[in-house]
Structures are given as C-alpha cells and as structure tokens.
Write a protein that binds this DNA or RNA. Structure first.
Lengths: 186, 186
DNA sequence: ACCTGAACACCGTTCAAGT
DNA sequence: ACCTGAACACCGTTCAAGT
C-alpha cells in the first residue's frame, strides 16, 4: 500500500531556506533539513536529487521573491524615480534576506545554478526602466550598469567591506542619483 | 631534539589558494592541503589554528595581490583615464583569480574575514582617484560607487548571470565611462 | 510509493605518543 | 618542536528492507 508523503518539496525548500538564512550555506545540512521536516535524511532523496539541487531550488525561490519585490517597486511615472525605487527595493530585499540573497550572484556549481530564464524575468523590470531612461540602443548596457552597482553595493555591505566610516545610506543614495543622471539620455 | 618543519605557512597558504582556484571553497579540504604540502593533516594545525584561519590567510594573500594590481594600473595623469584603468585592472585580476577573488566580498564567518586595514589599503588607490575626480567632500561616496559597480559587474560575470546576450566587454566600458562622467565634478 | 536503518566514503579536529 | 596514527563527531549519499 502506497504511503502518503510525510513531507513535501515546498516544506523542504522552505526549511532549507530558513537554515541558510540563519546559518549560511554551511548550515544547510541534509540531516538538519530532514530534522526540520521531521523525516529521516534518506527520505529527502525522494523529493530532491541531492543537496546541489536543493540549493538550486532555494535560489530559484529567492529569485522569484526578488522579482516580486522589484515589480512592486516601480510606479512607471518617471524613470529616474523608478530607478531610485528599484535600487531601494533591491537593497531592502537583500537586507531582509541576506543569507539567501548572497546565493543569487555567488559562483555556484552548475547543478545549483538557477534557471537562467528566472534571472532574466527578475531583471526585466530593471531592463524596462533602463530603456525608458537610456533609450533602446543602450537599454541592456544601462540595465547591467545599474544591476552591477546595486548588487556590488549590497554585496560589499553584507560582507562587511565598508569599513572606512561615512554614511552608508547616503553613499547608496548618492550612487543611485549619479547613475540616474549618467544614464539619462532623454 | 627539535624536528625542523617539513612545511611552512607560506607553502600551506599557496597550496590552499591553488585548491580554491581549481575547485572552489569546497575543494579546500585540510586533508588535500596536507597532501599538497606532503604532511599528515594534523601537522597543519602547528601552522594554522584551523580551516577558518587558513581561509582568512588566503583571502588576505589575494587582497594583497589585488592591491598591487590596482596600484600598478594608475598613471596619475588624468583621473578619468585612471578610473578606466583601475576598473580594467580590477576586472582583469578577477578573471585571472576567479576562485580567490570570489572570497574577497563574500559573506564569510568572522574568523575567516580579512583584516579590515588590508581591505582599506587595497581600496586606497580607488579612493585617491575618486577624490581627484569628485572632490574631497564626495571622495568616499564616489569611491564606493566605483568599487560597488566594478565588483558587482565581475561578480555577476563570474556567477554567469549575464545571460541576455549583448557584448559584455562593451557593457563594462560603457559603465566605466558613464561613471567617469557622472562622478566628475571638476 | 514513500520511509527507514545501516552502511560507505568522506569531512575537520583533537590528542597521546613518537622522534 | 614538529610530526604521526588513531579516534571522535560530523557530513552527503546509497540501498536493501519494511509498510
């Protein structure tokens, strides 16, 4: 007689994401995930091919949430204002999900990398704002400049790399505004 | 009778850095480092307090090399040209040391983080160029904008996050030039 | 069809014993 | 003073056996 599942993929991914958030990638041990969903470790392999794939699923979950946050941030009125709103939403998301966020742009083994189309979708709002600002011919380059700066900023922040004093919030606003000016070709 | 050391801290750090470069942080196993320097694993602990500290020493080694590369890149003639030269040197370094580079701005446990003063020294050249460009009152913010963008760009590149086509080299040059314009307050 | 216990091949690290 | 072998407490993963 078939036994009903005692856990589920969503429960496993959620548990894994919690573990990563609280203790980083090292804390993501299959045995601990199993504990969290109240199952023996080998049972996890009925839902997931292995730890690498679980990491991938967690990253994809995070990327989906990031996309929602970015989409919710823009108003569509003024591209310069939208750029600032996107940057702030991006940073807020990273601050609220530092452990999971760190995985998005970290060099992971092929098996743990998120589906590229998900990353593309998450970046779509930035691309549209970049196009409104910089024009169609420079849209992609402008979007990459914005994303690179925003990611680099929060990555350094989360890694504790800003150690020379000064106001971090102001530095972020400074960057967002200067980038808005620099990319505006209207 | 005292036994002469069969290995050394520099040999251990070099071996560790090689392992990280070829197989990432996961490849940095104490047993494999021990193999590389031809010693039994427990002997490593006479030179290093543990794996965490070894990671820290490796990161500090890399940061020192990055600093040298950046210092060698500037000519001091024109700040805009220096900014481009710094950005290119930064990116070249990351491409040549992708495994080790990834560690610099990754969120590491406290015990593995590099000495903050080393990071400061590595960033000093960028700070000076930023000051020449943006003026003393905005030097730190400008330096952070430049560094964030450059790091974000190569981090995304190394993570394989640029998947929408387009020319990556041109996107980098585009960003460097626009940033130069945006930060120039002379 | 899903879960389990036992097992395998790995880890980092400790420590008493050797030279 | 440094190195070693043996051991401990962990990993991820596999697999035959249970229900």
């Amino acid at each position: 007689m078939p036994t009903p599942s005692r856990t589920s993929l969503v429960a496993i991914v959620a548990a894994g994401r919690r573990l990563i958030e609280s203790e980083g990638l090292t804390g993501l041990a299959m045995r601990r995930v199993a504990d969290e969903v109240e199952v023996q470790p080998p049972s996890l392999y009925k839902h997931v091919t292995g730890r690498s794939e679980l990491i991938k699923l967690i990253v994809e979950d995070v990327v989906g949430d990031l996309r929602s946050s970015l989409n919710a941030a823009v108003t569509g009125s003024d591209p310069r204002a939208d750029l600032v709103a996107l940057a702030e939403a991006f940073r807020r998301f990273a601050h609220e999900n530092p452990g999971a966020y760190a995985l998005i742009f970290t060099p992971l083994p092929e098996k743990s990398r998120p589906d590229p189309t998900l990353l593309t979708k998450a970046g779509d709002q930035v691309l549209r704002t970049a196009e409104a600002l910089a024009g169609a011919e420079h849209a992609l380059e402008a979007a990459r400049t914005i994303t690179a700066w925003a990611h680099g900023f929060v990555a350094m922040e989360l890694a504790g790399a800003f150690r020379m004093g000064g106001n971090i919030d102001e530095a972020f606003t400074f960057g967002a505004e200067r980038l808005g000016e620099a990319l505006d070709s209207r």
